[in-house]
Structures are given as structure tokens and as C-alpha cells.
Computed example of a mutant assay.
Amino acid sequence: MAAGKTVKAAIDELRSAVGSLENAIDGRFDRERDHGEIEGEVRRVNTDRSRLAQELDQSQFRANRLEEVNREVSRRLVTAMETIRAVLDR
């Protein structure tokens, strides 16, 4: 009877070990899946960052161009006002 209990105990320990191994494997799969999701999110964030950086560069270029145009318009208005004053003063 002692041999029967020993075999039963060994089988119970084996079942417990297999259960622990299954839990460890499930945990590992979950971590791998989470890791893959995180990597995907990082790629999406980097893509968004690149797109936003490009849009910012384009906006800065447009702002600089508008500033140049504004200076040119201002210069022309001053010239026009001076011309009008000169004509009125005659």
C-alpha cells in the first residue's frame, strides 16, 4: 500500500508541476502579446510624431513666407503713402 501512495503522490506532484508549467506558459504568451501591442503602439506614436514634425516644418515655412510678404506689403504701402504725400504737397 505504501508503494500505491508513493505513486499517487508522484502523479499528484506531476499534475501540479504540469499545471504550474501551463500557467507559466500562459503568462509568457500574455507578456509576449502585451509586448507586441506595446511595440505596435510605439510605432504608431513614432509615425504620428514624424507626421506632426513634418506639419510643423511646413507651418513654420508658411509663417516665414507670410512674414516676408507682410514686410514687402508694408514697404510698398510706405512707398505709396510717400508718393501720395509728395503729389499732395505740390
Rank of each mutant, 00 (worst) to 15 (best):
S20N: 15
G36M: 11
I84Q: 12
R31C: 03
A80L: 03
G36Q: 06
M81H: 10
T47Y: 08
D12W: 05
V18S: 12
E41M: 04
D26K: 12
R28F: 14
R28G: 12
H35K: 11
G4D: 03
T79A: 12
E72F: 00
H35V: 05
A53R: 09
R49P: 08
E72R: 03
L56Q: 15
S59A: 14
I84V: 06
M81P: 00
R85W: 05
D89A: 13
M1C: 13
G36I: 02
N23S: 15
E39T: 04
Q60H: 14
G27Y: 01
A2L: 13
V87E: 07
E13M: 09
G19Y: 09
E22Q: 05
Q54W: 03
E39I: 08
K8C: 03
R76E: 08
A3K: 08
N46M: 04
L77G: 01
E55I: 00
I84L: 13
I84N: 08
F61Q: 15
I11F: 06
R85S: 11
V18N: 13
G4Y: 03
A86I: 04
S16I: 01
D48K: 01
T79P: 00
A80S: 07
V78E: 15
A86D: 15
R15G: 06
R31H: 03
A80K: 02
D48I: 01
E72M: 02
S74C: 03
G36P: 01
R33S: 11
N23Q: 13
S20C: 10
L52W: 03
M1V: 11
D48H: 00
N70D: 04
A17R: 04
L52Y: 12
A24S: 12
V73H: 02
I25H: 15
A10E: 02
D89C: 00
V78M: 09
R43H: 03
R85D: 13
S50K: 09
L14I: 04
T6L: 14
R49L: 14
G4E: 05
R62M: 13
N64A: 14
E82P: 00
E22N: 08
V87N: 07
I11E: 06
G4M: 06
A86W: 11
R75P: 01
A80E: 13
A80Y: 08
E37N: 10
R33F: 10
T79G: 06
R62T: 11
K8L: 13
Q54K: 09
F29C: 09
R28C: 08
V78K: 15
A10N: 06
E22P: 00
R71F: 02
V73Y: 06
L21P: 00
R28Q: 13
R85H: 04
E41A: 07
R33T: 13
A9C: 00
Q60F: 07
K5C: 08
I11C: 01
E37S: 07
A2Q: 13
N46L: 10
T6I: 02
D30Y: 05
E67V: 02
